[in-house]
Computed example of a mutant assay.
Amino acid sequence: MADPTGSIEQASPTSGWQRFWGRGGWWRAFLFAALYIAVYLGVGRLVGLLGQGPDSPDELLDSAGSVFFGLALPILVMSVLLLVFLRSMRWRREVFGPQPVAGRPWMWGAVALVLAPIALHLVGTSWSSYSPTVVLTVLFLGLCIGFAEEVLTRGVAVTMLRRAGYGEKAVMVLSSLLFALLHASNALSGQALLTVGTTIVFAFGFGTMMYLSMRVTGSIVPAILLHAATDPTTILATGGVDTHGTSAGAESINALAGTFNIVFVVAAVVAVFLVSGRARALDTAPATSRP
């Protein structure tokens, strides 16, 4: 069940900035993610200093304003900055264009696994607990999260890893690990270390499902939309962010949805043994020698 193989063609770099990031590699991908987190936390801190957002994490879902300023605005800013970065690197086609390596039929299982808890959360949410404006703002938040985190990890990071010549197994594992480690920043907000650790493990499984979804659909866009549906439905169902084992709606249904976090991790481990191959040449990228 090997995947198609080959190498990625790259656009000729014209500046030191493009040459540095264009060489790719795991440490550049992780460095870029660290810079992303630093700027994200800085924007969030600035919003807090300006007196915007909620006074405490418990008030995040109290109003549309608290959701927007407390959660969505920093991620919206990061989404814009990621687009600026892609433009500066001329990677927009490489990230948003067709995948350079075909998916396998079994990868559709990842899409099904991600859709299942989304459906359960939709049924299990106590919708009367929220105003329509809060629900709409949380959905907008989900779009921001899905776009920013997928472009960062399944877009920029995957591109850097493939450009450095990594096989798809390494690309999947490293990009999913990077996605998981992004959630370690929750510790800076005072979240319990056990919760942070659990979130990191679950995020690795979910990140792997996103990678497989991107591969089998042939585009990063479905992964963005799946991610954009996962976070808001989970937040509304549980009544918080990264609140494992809690429920703000039908307890049994949401508890069942929560078990998929474990399923994701198990499926990720299985995927490690099935994914293979290297990315073939990109039809959308100008051909040149590797810098």
Rank of each mutant, 00 (worst) to 15 (best):
M1K: 14
I8N: 10
I8A: 10
R19C: 08
G24E: 03
R28I: 08
I37K: 02
A38D: 06
L46C: 10
G51M: 14
Q52R: 10
P54Y: 13
P57S: 12
L60G: 12
G65I: 10
V67F: 02
I75T: 14
L82Q: 14
R92T: 14
F96S: 04
P100G: 07
A102V: 07
R104V: 02
P105N: 06
W106I: 05
A110I: 11
P117V: 03
A119F: 01
L120R: 00
T125K: 02
S126P: 01
S128I: 12
S129F: 01
G142C: 08
L143T: 09
I145M: 11
E149G: 13
R154Y: 14
R154W: 13
G155M: 06
V156W: 04
V156T: 10
V158I: 10
R163G: 09
G167T: 05
M172G: 00
L174A: 11
L174H: 08
S176K: 01
N186W: 03
A187L: 08
G190Y: 11
A192Q: 07
L194W: 13
G197W: 09
T199M: 09
I200L: 12
F202P: 00
A203S: 15
M209R: 00
L212C: 08
P222L: 10
A228F: 10
L236Q: 02
A237L: 01
A237M: 01
T238R: 01
T238C: 04
H244G: 04
G249N: 08
I253E: 01
A257N: 03
I262A: 00
V266F: 00
R280K: 15
P291Y: 15
